[in-house]
Design a protein around this nucleic acid. Sequence first.
DNA 1: CTCCATATTGGTAATGATTTCCATTAACAA
DNA 2: TTGTTAATGGAAATCATTACCAATATGGAG
Lengths: 156, 156
Amino acid sequence: MSKAHLKTSRWMHGKFKCCGYRMTKPREAILDVLAGTQKHLSAEDIYLAVLKFYPNTGLTTVYRNLEMFVNIGMIVKFDFGEGRSKYELADQYSEKGHHHHLVCKTCYKVIDYSDFMKDEIHFLRSIENGLSQKYNFRITDHLIRFLGICEKCGKK
Amino acid sequence: MSKAHLKTSRWMHGKFKCCGYRMTKPREAILDVLAGTQKHLSAEDIYLAVLKFYPNTGLTTVYRNLEMFVNIGMIVKFDFGEGRSKYELADQYSEKGHHHHLVCKTCYKVIDYSDFMKDEIHFLRSIENGLSQKYNFRITDHLIRFLGICEKCGKK
DNA sequence: CTCCATATTGGTAATGATTTCCATTAACAA
DNA sequence: TTGTTAATGGAAATCATTACCAATATGGAG
């Protein structure tokens, strides 16, 4: 966590200054929490983790900042179907790098994978061009996800 | 709508009998509503449309049946990030057939596309095999979606 | 065709995640 | 150090979705 902290602080300054945002303890803590885990955390998970550093943090503040981080592209928000969103550091700020998810429809377990990225690049290139022209749409992101039954749920 | 209705009724009987479900007016109406549109409807959209046929239908009933239809695979539930789910007839029951979505991050407009399905099949085949073996996961579905800014939002 | 067991319904009240409001506090440029 | 203004946090409000439960309707058995 401490290493993540140092790394985090570094980009924060740069990224924040140019966006006109201020650096605050809750913001720093939110990024630290996300940088210090491989898991997919909900807003409340993050709130509880942040509380350990800054005991007066409000849940509202966590939601507000998550939204802001998502807007400036530092955090990505996911919905895996559980009824609450999960958050991850964006690829370029994360040790994970570019990856996708394998989601169990039964228990909502999420497995990150980064296999087949070569095939993906090849697959996406032509499609993105084709679609953005045909539909007059500026594509900025893609979501590729596989759904099914995880090992544990498959045995029941 | 009437044509859709006839078509709907036909599969309902078969599908329902073998699952042990009963055929009811709300169920028929929900399928009819979805068969009669190309749009992505929310539970409330469907509820309001169903009310026109069966004025006493309850919103609870709509939610309950949507869940059931999703479970037996006749309807697919999507979350495009608006804060409420959208529903579509499953590919095999819909005139649309297999398709994916292009979603505007700003206004949540959704464009269906079914281009590049050949490339997709080729892309998915190896990946699904690889992932399911490596992660011991039975893949039943995939989600491919492109995100960005639609034409209208791009001009602002 | 009628009856019965039980699946299904629909209204209301709960739930739970996320937002709104607003008075107080803290960042940071000058 | 100070002033401007972004940011905070607590409580209350929203809003989609669920849980409950008494009343009703479906479809097979007789």
